[in-house]
Write a protein that binds this DNA or RNA. Sequence first.
DNA 1: TTGCTATATAGTAATATGCTGATATATCTA
DNA 2: TAGATATATCAGCATATTACTATATAGCAA
Lengths: 100, 100
Amino acid sequence: MIDNNIAKHVAEVLKAVAHPARLKIVELLVPGEMNVGDIVRAVSEKQAITSQQLNMMKDKGVLGSRRDGSKVYYHIENKNVIRLLDCIYDHCEQEKGTRR
Amino acid sequence: MIDNNIAKHVAEVLKAVAHPARLKIVELLVPGEMNVGDIVRAVSEKQAITSQQLNMMKDKGVLGSRRDGSKVYYHIENKNVIRLLDCIYDHCEQEKGTRR
DNA sequence: TTGCTATATAGTAATATGCTGATATATCTA
DNA sequence: TAGATATATCAGCATATTACTATATAGCAA
């Protein structure tokens, strides 16, 4: 069976993206980096909460960031979450097609 | 951008498996169904909490169950979580290989 | 320096989650 | 039926998460 520490780590990563707004943020960053202000506008959330979520995902290793002048750009650091999202979105498509 | 309701649903599914013990349960069920008692023994958790987690994942559509006599067998209902796990475990393998 | 924009953080309240011990329910066997 | 086994559920507590407001910090430009 899966090692306990690995299970904990995997659960952390999953929890980091298991939130509607955070899924959207990750989706936004798939094509490339984006600064906080643009992200805030794109997801239509308050600045504070978006900043908190960005920091949270950075803590968990999902995102990374760099500052350029007064702006901070976030990007996907853990590229595997992209594949994760691919799996999930495929899943949604399938569900649509095979709706019970 | 991803639809809001889909985002909520995806987040729910992710949250359902984003827990060390629940990841183990799902892993156990990949080869096929298993009854509650065997699951409890395999994950070395208390009966009550395992039952709660099984029910929770069933609620979220991740698992399904059938009763056979006095035993209840759980199986993976949402097959896409298997692919999800594949992604994640591949990710862990890669991490091991490219440890910074 | 002042003021402006961009981002982060602190404090807090509401809600959700995780776990426990106890109990309830269902099924089987004698 | 009684007793044993299998599973589910309840009540309660501790902790975690979420989201909010307000405030703090960082960089830029005048």
